[in-house]
Design a protein around this nucleic acid. Structure first.
Lengths: 296, 296
DNA sequence: TGGAGACCATGCAATCCTGCATGGCATGGC
DNA sequence: GCCATGCCATGCAGGATTGCATGGTCTCCA
């Protein structure tokens, strides 16, 4: 094959179905995707895609090379992983995928310590619940509230984080104080946009807000805190965040907090990479030192 | 990984050990190989090669990605093969015009490989020097020792084939050994009926037989080989044929063989049809694999 | 010892590729 | 109907990549 890179374009187009979407994921212009895929078809002498009204659909020929192409992708990832594993330098970028609360409470403080010793290590923190694929190397490291099981991933428990319901002082003054377990009918809720799927402990916390009206939905933790702090409603926050903000009060100060385990996920091959090892060590140190705060 | 194609360069350099050799195999300038491999190293953040006096040697990091890179290569081959296999037109007859020696040494072995994968492809091999007109579609493909220039034909060099003078052991025992360049007066020659017009290197070989008596003339290579093997005279044969027959000996074993380039000629617009592409690929694979044998 | 041959680094010019812009074509909401 | 949105084809200009040329190092061999 003249140009292996064409397979990368082929695969992405097969997944994205349109030139435009594939181009965005590949970070090139869509004309480039079209041209390279056409060239690939010409080279192979086979029509790989049917141009239908709803996008590019694989032909039989395209379908029949898909598996091999994915195999190739897997090997490409392997190449990358092993190269990364061989890299002992304490410099370069580490990409971390984490829930925003974990990013705030764990990753950034850990990074601050790490930066003192190794200023060459850069962090690319991708918060949000969108599950970046560690296996496909969309991130080097992930912090998750629910551990995935799969293949070559190394998983370890970092800490457990406390969550509780918070409201602003004046919100609590203006509303009839809720009773534990009695529901929040008549209350306003500040909700995270996407649910923390797969974290049962956390689910039980948000479930208790079910009866409340959703006054605010946001997909940014900062907005969430501000919403609660501004008296817009009751919200579930990590204790790190809630306790640190003087404007916030726990709704049930006497109840124990909800604990959710935080898991570190990393690909087996990159565990030896210098900068990644260093960051993992910093994360663990941070979790040890701040265990009390994190657990609430 | 930003550019999968870099892996192809990496692998080739790992095998070839020098930029120059790798570049020749990849059909690019060696500066390109150097630059792309360097870029790859930069991207991975790992030094893959040690630049030693005797070429590029894999570092530990390079060694550790080699297996995955080879895996990737295997998948690339799979992609290609399935694309070929998926083309529904991979059946029917391909008509090939070739000199008998090329047919024997290249076309038939290539066809054997091809037949494993695509048993529905049939070959119609028309040997002989009569120039079938590709342009007029008297054949789909031609293998020639002299490239025609004309219009819509696609021409590429397949390999170079070695020719040498052969005789049987007992013929050599019975005759005064000829001296290189001194002519063959008093010898018997086994000649191909029609001359290889247009292949100067070959002409020089047969020219040296000018002084010999023509003991046998034949227009079949099989007859030619048999004639030489039976001690009827000295004949110019491809090294493939001559070296493979235990009854034959090179007349001048110490002289380098005469090399004649073998050209593949195909009409531009049939280049894309599946069965023809498949055969071309098989021909090229055969020439690559058997290059040493073909060159003598 | 010196010259040929093989190899590699670097500067520069031509080429190829990419991205942008325009325009055409669908779909869907108002 | 009409506009907004999303998609793709094609022409064109800028820029990245390539190949070539020069110059240097090393080895081998006469």
């Amino acid at each position: 094959m003249a140009d292996w890179d064409a397979v990368r374009f082929f695969l992405e187009l097969a997944r994205a179905k349109t030139l435009a979407r594939a181009a965005r994921r590949l970070r090139v212009d869509y004309t480039t995707v079209g041209r390279r895929v056409s060239a690939f078809e010409r080279e192979l002498g086979a029509k790989l895609f049917e141009r239908t009204p709803d996008g590019f659909v694989l032909t039989d020929a395209g379908e029949s090379i898909r598996a091999a192409a994915e195999q190739m992708e897997q090997s490409a990832v392997d190449v990358e992983q092993r190269a990364l594993g061989a890299d002992r330098r304490l410099s370069g970028t580490v990409r971390v995928a984490a829930a925003e609360s974990a990013g705030h409470a764990v990753v950034l403080p850990a990074m601050r310590d790490l930066h003192q010793r190794h200023p060459e290590i850069r962090l690319h923190l991708q918060t949000g619940l969108a599950r970046l694929d560690i296996a496909r190397r969309e991130a080097d490291l992930a912090l998750r509230f629910a551990p995935p099981e799969s293949g070559d991933l190394r998983i370890r428990r970092l800490t457990s984080m406390g969550f509780a319901l918070y409201a602003s002082e004046d919100y609590l003054a203006r509303h009839r104080p809720p009773a534990p377990g009695a529901g929040f009918a008549g209350h306003d809720a500040v909700l995270f946009d996407e649910g923390f799927r797969g974290a049962p402990a956390f689910a039980s916390l948000t479930d208790s807000l079910r009866d409340a009206r959703a006054a605010v939905r946001a997909n940014s933790m900062l907005s969430l805190v501000e919403a609660v702090a501004n008296g817009l409603g009751v919200g579930a926050l990590t204790c790190c965040l809630g306790d640190a903000d003087p404007r916030l009060r726990r709704v049930f100060p006497d109840l124990p907090v909800q604990r959710v385990d935080l898991w570190l996920v990393v690909h087996a091959d990159v565990q030896r990479t210098g900068r990644i090892r260093a960051l993992i060590a910093a994360l663990e140190a941070r979790c040890r030192k701040a265990a009390a705060v994190l657990r609430g």
